[in-house]
Simulated assay, not measured.
Amino acid sequence: MSAAKFSSAQAPPAAPASVRVRAPGKINVSLRVGPLRADGYHGVASVYLAVSLFEEVQATVTESPGITVTVDSDGALQVPVGGIPLGPDNLAARAAQALASFAEKPTGVHLHITKRVPVAGGMGGGSADAAAALVACDALWNTHLSREELAGIAAGLGADVPFSLLGGTAVGLGIGDRLTPAISKTPLHWVLVASDSGLSTPAVYRALDALRTEEQLQAEEPVEVDSAILAAMRSGNARDLAAVMSNDLQAAALRLAPELADLRSAGVRLGALAGMVSGSGPTIAFLAEDSGAATALEAALRAEGHRALAVEGPVSGARLLPAVVG
């Protein structure tokens, strides 16, 4: 069947009045950090993996101009949302505002965010909200931007936002925003454990710089991804990956939140192949042998009082959800 065509006398399909988009959180399966640069950033070489823990944004056209935001949460990790900004500083609101300049007739929009990814947890939850807002407002405002064009806007919002659009598995260079998709077709199974408090990403980077100064360590430049990580991801062999996954920010996160060391040890004791701080932390990602092992590890960690959730990856990036009928 051929695609529908519209004559000059016909109007294109009307934009929807409300859409829902979900976007995944991520794990940094490998994260290498270069020295502090003159511009205040660190060069990184990261292997990103999008996992099946999704933020959801419902975007609705409003009669009044401007962008408004509300937030709630649901899901097994019981994400607290009290400290999330609801004004123009919210990253999803910033994403919508950035997209508005590309729309012929941008309307007012209300963004309702359902949080499931830990806040300030090293999993890119705010970046997922921004990616979801870009996709949602693109649909509401009929901007018809390509994924590449949306990714260009995303890069101006934060280092992790382009990956939240892309999803899957990718190598991230620069400050993490220069992405190259990587092959990883076999699902990998993880258990995430959320912390009761978040960690500031800038504070973790500052702690890393301080540790390197104290220990007289010289960071590599240019920073590169370990080929063994990519080989393990391609093979889908969890044991091979457990032997090589690493995070240069982990020592800094453990300095700021030393209780995480005991949590990592508990996960391995209960059956994880390996455990690692995700990104800047404090969420811990435990790698499991397979789906059954992840389910058993989730139950064991919950029995010891931890907020644990079994997930898998890779999964797709930000996507429109079907309209709710009825």
Rank of each mutant, 00 (worst) to 15 (best):
S8W: 15
Q10F: 13
P16S: 04
A17G: 15
A17D: 14
S18L: 00
N28S: 01
L36Q: 10
Y41C: 06
G43K: 13
S46G: 00
L49Y: 12
A59Q: 03
V61G: 01
G82N: 13
D89F: 03
A92V: 04
A95M: 01
S101D: 13
L111G: 02
A132Q: 09
A133S: 09
A136S: 07
N142P: 00
S146F: 02
A151P: 01
D160A: 03
D160Q: 01
V161E: 05
F163T: 07
L165K: 10
V171M: 13
G172R: 06
I175V: 14
G176Y: 01
I183K: 15
W190G: 10
L192F: 07
V193I: 08
A203M: 08
V204I: 06
Y205D: 09
A207N: 05
E221L: 10
P222A: 04
D226Y: 03
S227K: 15
R234F: 02
G236N: 04
N237S: 10
R239E: 14
R239G: 12
L254S: 03
E259Y: 09
L260T: 05
A266V: 10
R269V: 00
G275D: 04
M276W: 02
A285Y: 02
F286L: 08
L287Y: 07
A288R: 01
D290V: 01
G292A: 12
R302G: 13
G305M: 01
G313M: 10
S316N: 14
A318G: 04
A323S: 12
A323Y: 07
V324H: 14
